[in-house]
Simulated assay, not measured.
Amino acid sequence: MDDRDVMNVMIIGHSFIRRLRDDLTGEWSNLGFDNDSISVHCYGKGGGRLRDIYSCMSDAISTIKPKIVLLQIGGNDIDSRDFENVRDRLARDLISIAQWLREGFSVQQVGIMQLFYRGKTRHITVQDYNHSVDSVNDVVKSMCGSIEGCFYWRHKGLKDAAFDCLCKDGVHLSDKGLRKYKYSVRGAVLWGLTSANREAAKPRDRSV
């Protein structure tokens, strides 16, 4: 198959994505997809924040030219002494990144994935952090519903049992959590692919 026929998918974010990349071995290589049709690229930066997508990952996005991008980022931004201001603008900033990816890199579908609760934090209380996560997730979900080529992805099986799926550090996923996460991320890729194909099949208005 011609390389041009392969659908490139990028999963971008913080250390969750770096750990996901390291765990994609054996039957889970390439997130379990056929390499002849889909190529999955994971770019995760430990401690990553939203600004790192612009400063550290633009070159990779330009090189890979993904049609689907999934974002798992924002938690480290919230764990800040300025968390109230961060919380109030974070959803809009995530949507801005999605629009930047679509308009600047011709990405067909951008999935903004659910932020996770934490059991331990550095700069604010755990309660403030987790309430902020709920707030941001709710706003992102609402905003994605009205923006073309952008969807919110809830990690099934991880929200209600969030704390059971964390490591002792209270931040990263345990082995149990990572297994669930892989299935969820694969589901998000499939949703993005289906949405992209559905969008491509729409008849174009040639009257304009």
Rank of each mutant, 00 (worst) to 15 (best):
S55M: 13
N85F: 05
K202T: 07
G187Y: 14
R204L: 05
D88A: 05
F83I: 07
G32S: 00
D138C: 05
L71I: 10
A161E: 14
S184V: 13
S146Y: 04
Y129H: 09
D169E: 04
D82V: 02
H41C: 13
S39M: 08
I17N: 12
S146K: 06
E27D: 08
Y181S: 11
V189N: 03
H172A: 13
V189K: 06
R81M: 07
G46F: 04
G177W: 11
H41Y: 15
R186C: 07
E27M: 07
R49G: 11
V189A: 04
N35E: 08
G75V: 05
S39R: 10
G157Y: 13
E199M: 02
R21M: 13
V110R: 00
I147Y: 02
F116T: 08
G26I: 02
G149T: 03
V185H: 02
L20V: 11
D52E: 13
L193D: 02
H172F: 13
G170I: 08
W100C: 00
N76Q: 02
A196K: 04
G32T: 00
R102V: 01
D169K: 02
I68T: 08
K45I: 11
D138P: 02
K202M: 06
L115V: 11
D3F: 15
S58I: 14
V140C: 02
A98I: 01
K156Q: 14
S37E: 03
D205N: 12
L20Q: 11
G119C: 01
V136N: 03
F83M: 05
R87Y: 05
L190M: 14
L190I: 13
S29A: 06
R179D: 10
V126C: 14
F105E: 00
